[in-house]
C-alpha cells in the first residue's frame, strides 16, 4: 500500500481520509455538509477541499437552480481510497464505473482495471480521464511495459476509450464556440478579434478583447481600450488600479489576487466595480493590457 501511495505522491492523514470518505458516501455534497458532519470550521474544510481539488481527488459542479457547489470524488480519489483499503470493493467498482463511463463492465472487470491503474501508475497519468488514461496505458502496452495479465480486459477498455474518442470527434465543435461568444456588458465600438492602429502603433485584440501581445501596451493603448471596449474615460482613480495591476503583472506574470488588490489599494468591492463595471478580470485586466486571467473551473 505505501508503495502505491508513494507513486501517487498523495498522503492523507486520518482526518483527510475521513473527509474524503464522507464525500464519497454522500456525494454530491456541499462544503457546509462536510463541515457539519466532521464538526470542522468552514474555513478549515475549504482549505482541505481546495487541496483535494489541486491533487485531483475531488471536483465540483454548481447545482442548477440553487447554484450550490457540490463536490464529488474523482477516479484518482477513488483509487487513493482503494490504496488505503478504505472502500468496499462494491462501492469502488460502482464509483469508478460511473466516473469512467464504463457501464457494461462488471464489478470484477472494473476492479481489475483499477488494479492495473494502481500497479502501473506513474506521476502524471491522467487517471481522471478514462480516454487519456487508455491512451497512456495503450502506448505502454505497445511498448511491452504494462504489468497486466488480462489482455482481453485491456482490449475492451481500449476499444471503449476509442469509441468515446470517436464520439467526441463526431460531436464536433459547437457553433457558438466556433464563432466566438458575445462579450456581455461591454460598450464596444471596437470588434473583437480585431487589429487597430493606436497612437501610431498597430495592436491586436483577441476574441475576448484582451490585448493579444501585452508588450504592445502603453498608456495610449490603455486609454483606447478603456474608451472603445469598456466605454470608460480613465480618471486618476482608474489609473491607480491599472498601474497596480500592470506593475504586478510585469513583476509576477499574473494578475494580482483580488483580495490583495483590494487591501493593497485600500478599496472596496464597491469601488472596484464602480470603476470597472465589467469586473476586475475583465475590464481592469483588459485596460491594463494583460492576458485574460484564467481561474474558475
Amino acid at each position: 500500500m505505501s508503495g502505491l501511495l508513494e507513486r501517487f505522491d498523495v498522503r492523507l492523514d486520518e482526518r483527510e481520509l475521513r473527509i474524503l470518505l464522507g464525500i464519497i458516501g454522500s456525494e454530491p455534497t456541499t462544503a457546509y455538509k462536510v463541515a457539519v458532519d466532521n464538526r470542522m470550521h468552514f474555513s478549515y474544510v475549504y482549505k482541505k477541499l481546495w487541496s483535494f481539488e489541486q491533487e485531483g481527488l475531488v471536483a465540483y459542479f454548481c447545482e442548477p437552480g440553487s447554484g450550490r457547489k457540490l463536490y464529488y470524488v474523482l477516479p484518482k480519489g477513488v483509487l487513493i481510497l482503494m490504496a488505503y483499503e478504505a472502500l468496499s470493493p462494491k462501492m469502488a467498482a460502482d464509483k469508478l464505473r460511473d466516473r469512467w463511463n464504463l457501464k457494461d463492465f462488471s464489478d470484477d472487470e472494473i476492479l481489475e482495471l483499477a488494479h492495473i491503474f494502481l500497479n502501473n501508475y506513474r506521476p502524471g497519468t491522467p487517471v481522471n480521464d478514462s480516454v487519456m488514461s487508455a491512451y497512456v496505458l495503450y502506448t505502454r502496452y505497445l511498448a511491452g511495459e504494462l504489468n497486466a495479465r488480462n489482455r482481453a480486459l485491456l482490449n475492451k477498455f481500449f476499444r471503449r476509450a476509442f469509441e468515446a474518442l470517436i464520439g467526441l470527434i463526431g460531436e464536433g465543435v459547437p457553433a457558438e464556440m466556433r464563432t466566438g461568444h458575445s462579450v456581455e456588458g461591454l460598450h464596444m465600438t471596437a470588434s473583437c478579434p480585431g487589429t487597430y492602429r493606436v497612437a501610431g502603433r498597430e495592436i491586436r485584440l483577441d476574441e475576448d478583447c484582451y490585448l493579444e501581445n501585452p508588450s504592445d501596451w502603453s498608456r495610449d493603448v490603455a486609454v483606447w481600450i478603456a474608451e472603445n471596449v469598456e466605454g470608460l474615460s480613465l480618471t486618476e482613480e482608474h489609473w491607480r488600479l491599472v498601474d497596480y495591476v500592470r506593475a504586478y503583472w510585469e513583476k509576477r506574470g499574473e494578475c494580482p489576487p483580488v483580495g490583495r488588490l483590494l487591501k493593497d489599494l485600500g478599496i472596496t468591492f464597491e469601488d472596484l466595480y464602480r470603476l470597472f463595471p465589467s469586473g476586475p478580470a475583465e475590464g481592469l485586466c483588459r485596460v491594463a493590457g494583460v492576458p485574460r486571467p484564467g481561474g474558475c473551473p
Partner: peptide, 11 residues
C-alpha cells in the same frame, strides 16, 4: 469565491 482576480461564484 474568487480564483485569483476572477469571480467564480456568489451566494
Amino acid at each position: 469565491e474568487w480564483s485569483g482576480i476572477r469571480l467564480c461564484c456568489s451566494w
